[in-house]
Design a protein around this nucleic acid. Structure first.
Length: 259
DNA sequence: ATGCCGGCCCAAGGCCGA
């Protein structure tokens, strides 16, 4: 089973690219972030015409996440638990009820800039809530995977220019500590366990010729609980998407797990 | 580079992203 995570930076602007990508690459599951649309505005019919079931958690103008799946989704849950007042649409999870079910969690972790400030406080608080959700799913012994835009550069090898990010919310020490605490619960960074070297990125800024200079960062990740990591067969970045027509500033990151 | 580009709101210019 191939599962992709893709921050599409706006479903309205990216629909032709998304449909062509679904036709060409045919993921079994696609976790989308930054759809920037309310549920009613999401082009579910165009996508279901390609054979996908759609689960959306949208919001007007900003954020928004969705899961697309070729097989039915069950037990869909919207919103990251832990703050009833959180209005930002950054989390949706659902189960793929195959022979060995997989719990898919699609997330869009807050950016957190500028730092210090309320946005950074929100990011760290969100990461604490994420920690609690991961702990709960570990206790449940489900084969859970956490796929999405983490807005975290885990280590220096995940940036072309690590020094430029040192004081940024994506790489600041408390951000990296919180990410390490998460991984140390027993999660596997599926890309890193297979590909240890530097020079692998999932985001390049639209500005200053970042793509042309390969000035990228790796911030889109698949984290797997042990029961899912046991089934890991591959993880790779679809870098070429960034050089295509009207690209998102992120590219898809793929995960293959045994059925 | 405290935003160079791009997308959102919705009709202009401001907010947001990383």
């Amino acid at each position: 089973m191939r599962i992709a995570t893709f921050n599409i930076n706006g479903i309205k602007a990216r629909l032709p690219v998304l449909l062509e990508w679904l036709r060409d690459t045919a993921p079994d599951v696609a976790c989308l972030q930054e759809i920037k649309s309310v549920d009613a505005g999401f082009p579910s019919r165009e996508i279901s015409d390609l054979g996908y079931e759609v689960a959306v958690h949208g919001q007007k103008g900003f954020n928004g996440v969705a899961i697309l799946s070729r097989t039915p989704l069950v037990d869909i849950s919207r919103g990251l638990p832990g703050d009833e007042d959180d209005a930002q649409a950054r989390w949706i999870e659902a189960t793929i009820p195959t022979t060995r079910p997989i719990r898919i969690c699609c997330l869009y972790l807050p950016n957190g800039n500028p730092t210090p400030g309320p946005k950074y406080d929100y990011k760290l608080a969100w990461m604490e809530r994420l920690q609690a959700r991961v702990e709960a799913l570990l206790r449940s012994e489900s084969a859970a995977i956490f796929c999405g835009d983490y807005n975290v550069i885990p280590e220096d090898r995940d940036a072309a220019r690590p020094d430029a990010w040192r004081r940024d919310a994506l790489a600041l020490a408390p951000t990296r500590s919180a990410f390490r605490r998460l991984v140390h619960l027993g999660l596997t960074d599926a890309f890193r366990v297979r590909t240890p070297g530097s020079g692998h990125y999932s985001f390049w800024d639209y500005q200053a010729g970042a793509w042309e200079r390969d000035d990228g960062i790796r911030i889109d990740h698949h984290l797997l609980v042990p029961r899912a990591a046991d089934r890991l067969e591959g993880c790779w970045i679809e870098t070429t998407m960034r050089g295509g027509e009207k690209p998102s500033d992120h590219v898809p990151v793929w995960l293959e797990v045994a059925e």
